[in-house]
Design a protein around this nucleic acid. Structure first.
Lengths: 193, 193
DNA sequence: GTCTATACGGCGATAGAC
DNA sequence: GTCTATCGCCGTATAGAC
């Protein structure tokens, strides 16, 4: 397999592994096994575990930015801000059907203390802020509301709340209330394979 | 030092260490050093690293629940739901002046996949939901909005956004817009010691 | 109640062959 | 482009003394 393709495949698998276990909890061998190659080869291709993690984060942030820009570009002005927010919300849910991406983003947030990873995590988050405010034309308050909804969304999925969806009345109510029309998408994301 | 007091001291230090590094990234030796005792003694007192982490989470969740119940109890009915929400928001900000508590809660969220930790993390989150809905009397939508604001709050602090407060116009704007009147509290939380 | 010494396993990274 | 073998460190947990 050509190196470029192999790198992308490894990054995709690494997103899942890092997402599940966190930066420290994940091992390069788990990534290697997920990709069907040997552990030293993973290290060979990316230098160190930390560099691999940074590339995973960067990839996730780039995909998010590209998706948002795509939605903004193809939404006509007469949909209004509310319509645009709605489309962006759907795009976000759809994006993290690749579950590795959501979890990579979240892991970046909570690794904010790290001297190497923290700055990049902040830069990515602020980049999203700028896209929403400067390119989508949201007011600061609209951006805040949009981001807050996204963070709750992230948390509920990270907690695996859909796993107890059937057993717990409160969990079901909170999920339905949070995702409303997006619910079928969400259940598709985290339902059994 | 009596065992009970020692345990509480270790739990407080462990909250900070686990909060900074995550469950996998933190070591029992770091906890021991923070508490000024030997690593084997930490293990001796709590059995395993996992059990220590579970106690850290439980302690944080209990403190949160106790704080919210206290606010609900001492708020008179004629403050209205908006007034109660405001008080609860302030209480939350104040609670995580003990920074270890906030980070322990967040770490619990993203360790949701873990067979031992996940169930407890979900239980704690749903307990908060029940307090807000059944004891504070919020509607599901009000609870959702309250929780979403809290999750954004968590994320901004985890990212250490206040650290770049002075250098980045967007970071400043987002922080001000998110915390508004709570801002002085927040800056007190993460400012230099 | 707390320590020192240490066994044991696991992980990141390197060396070097094919 | 990819592997096997392996080194050396580090972290959890145990044993046992004081």
């Amino acid at each position: 397999m050509p190196a470029a393709q192999r790198r992308e495949q490894i990054l995709a698998e690494a997103s899942k592994v890092f997402g599940e276990r966190g930066y420290a909890g994940a091992t390069t061998d788990q990534v290697a096994q997920a990709a069907g190659i040997s552990q030293p080869y993973v290290v060979r291709l990316f230098g160190t575990k930390e560099k691999l993690f940074l590339e995973v984060i960067e990839r996730a942030q780039n995909k998010l930015a590209a998706r948002f820009r795509g939605v903004i570009a193809e939404t006509s002005a007469d949909d209004g801000q509310a319509g645009l927010a709605r489309r962006l919300g759907f795009a976000y849910v759809d994006l993290i059907e690749d579950r590795g991406i959501l979890l990579a983003l979240m892991q970046a947030f909570i690794t904010g203390h790290d001297p190497a990873i923290g700055p990049r995590a902040r830069a990515g988050f602020l980049a999203t802020y700028h896209i929403l405010r400067d390119e989508a034309g949201f007011s600061p308050d609209e951006v805040r509301e949009f981001l807050a909804a996204g963070m709750l969304f992230n948390t509920l999925l990270a907690l695996r709340l859909p796993d107890v969806f059937d057993d717990d009345e409160a969990a079901r109510e909170l999920m339905e209330c949070t995702f409303s029309t997006k619910l079928d998408l969400v259940l598709g994301v985290s339902g059994s394979p």
